[in-house]
Amino acid sequence: MAKNPADSLIVMTELVLPNDTNTFGNLMGGRLMYWMDIAAALSAQKHANLPVVTASVDNISFENPIKLGNSVHIEAKVTRAFNSSMEVHMMVHGEDLVNRYRYKSNEAYYTFVGLDPFGKPAAVPALEPVTEAELRLFEGALRRRQLRLILGGKMKPNDAAELKALFQL
């Protein structure tokens, strides 16, 4: 039975403490990626109703640092489900609680695989986007998946029809 992206929404909030920062007083990238992995796993597990494992992490670009004392808001939700894998989109914002200012820190895509009781890939429910934004993410997920498979050596570039269509007129 298909689900919609809102069914998998996870919003996680953390406070940046001294142990989370580098010498510049910014949140360490590794700590943020750890929190993002947790939020994405919760989202994927919520969608699949199965245990999940991280299969890949796409490029994470840090647009704005998150400072000591600020809060981190991670919104994660499934953008597309394939056979046993799911793409999870995350949007990360920092928030200066004293000055009441919220700003985008980064955005990323993680891929998770649902597992059966024996630790083997298991089928996950389909995803039906509802909003225009969800539809755009859903449609782009196939191209992003093909790119991941090519970079991982699991697909030949000539077999990536959706991706090739971007470059052919």
Score class of each variant (00 low, 15 high):
Ala160Thr: 01
Arg136Thr: 11
Val92Trp: 09
Gly114Asp: 06
Glu132Gly: 00
Ala122Thr: 02
Met12Thr: 11
Pro51Glu: 11
Leu42Pro: 01
Leu17Tyr: 08
Pro65Gln: 08
His89Thr: 04
Val57Leu: 08
Glu132Met: 04
Ala108Tyr: 03
Asp159Val: 03
Asn26Val: 02
Ile60Asp: 03
Gly94Leu: 11
Glu134Phe: 10
Ser71Asp: 09
Thr79Val: 14
Ala160Glu: 01
Asn59Phe: 06
Ala6Glu: 13
Arg80Phe: 01
Leu163Met: 12
Asn64Met: 11
Gln146Arg: 00
Phe167Asn: 07
Tyr110Phe: 15
Gly29Glu: 07
Val53His: 01
Arg145Met: 07
Met28Asp: 08
Ala76His: 09
Tyr110Asp: 02
Ser105Asn: 15
Gly69Glu: 07
Glu132His: 11
Asn26Glu: 11
Ser43Met: 06
Leu137Glu: 13
Ile150Tyr: 00
Val11His: 11
Pro117Met: 00
Ser105Lys: 09
Gly69Ala: 13
Tyr101Lys: 15
Val57Trp: 01
His89Asn: 05
Arg144His: 08
Tyr103Gly: 02
Gln146His: 04
Gln168Ala: 14
Pro121Lys: 13
Lys154His: 05
Leu32Tyr: 10
Ser85Val: 01
Asp7Asn: 13
Ala160Pro: 03
Gln45Ile: 02
Lys77Trp: 10
Leu163Ala: 01
Val11Cys: 10
Gln168Gly: 05
Pro121Arg: 09
Gly30Asn: 09
Lys46Phe: 04
Pro5Cys: 07
Phe82Gly: 09
Val53Glu: 05
Tyr110Lys: 00
Lys120Pro: 00
Arg80Leu: 03
Asn19Arg: 15
Asp159Pro: 02
Glu87Ala: 14
Ala76Trp: 12
Phe118Lys: 14
Val88Lys: 09
Tyr103Ser: 06
Val78Gly: 08
Glu134Val: 10
Ile66Thr: 11
Tyr110Glu: 05
Phe112His: 14
Val124Tyr: 04
His89Phe: 14
Val72Leu: 10
Leu27Asp: 09
Glu95His: 05
Glu162Trp: 05
Asp37Met: 09
Glu128Gly: 02
